[in-house]
Amino acid sequence: MNHNQPLRSAHAADAHGHAPGGFDETNPHGTAAGHHAHKHVIVSAFTNRVVLAVLLTFTALTVGLANAEVWIQQYFDIHFPTWVNVSVAMSIATVKAALVVMYFMQLRYDNPINTVIFLFSLFAFALFLGFTTIDLDNRGKVYAYKGGEVQVGGNRIVGAKTLDKPIVQQRREEFLKSVLAGDQAKFDAMKAELFHHRQNYHPRVEHSVSTSGTSRPRGGTTPGLFEAKAPADDGHGHGADHKHDSNSATKPASGSGH
């Protein structure tokens, strides 16, 4: 081994971009790492308190705004599209998250590489979410193709035969039969009571029927599910598939729902 021996001719160093001899051995990477001994940042107690206060305020704000939305819609009898709710809530959450990250987690005072790492994770998340949403409108077709076998909300009960109706409906009927002995009036009363109580802790826009002032579509629920007829009649583009499906007369087919 002859590693003490000078091994190379002189000229290549500059070609390679190293300042020969100008190398700081305690700070080989040119980062601050070698130099900032005793310079760890202390986020002051005052800053922490202010951040906490802001966070609590914003929590109150997001709850307040969500409830205000409901109130406004009911009072003025208008309809907000769903993105209003989401974007208000998410904007506030983002501000809160930014505060936690910057001050409690001290990213603001930290090595920038850590910020880069964190942003990368958010970026990857955005890609994941973004690209997963672009083929959403095809899901209905996939379900319709499987429509004969599969029920909305699932029907494959463990250790039992496959249900021939949606689980939600199945459970409702079981409850009505075994607990309430088929007493539909009692069922309705219990339901009304529960739903009324619900308004105390989760205000929501209740009227789903159109009024003279507004016209609201019933988005989301699978149309006709609890009515007697099969939903394939509702014109969701999968009626044709069911013509060939021997089961479609007895089983309500699934559909993406809207």
Binding site: I167, E174, L176, G220
Partner: peptide, 19 residues
């Protein structure tokens, strides 16, 4: 009975996908 998935047994659900 507001249980996940196929364990769901709450009787007053109003939407088939509530589970």
């Amino acid at each position: 009975g507001k249980l996940p998935g196929i364990l769901f047994s709450y009787p007053f659900a109003t939407d088939p996908h509530e589970n």
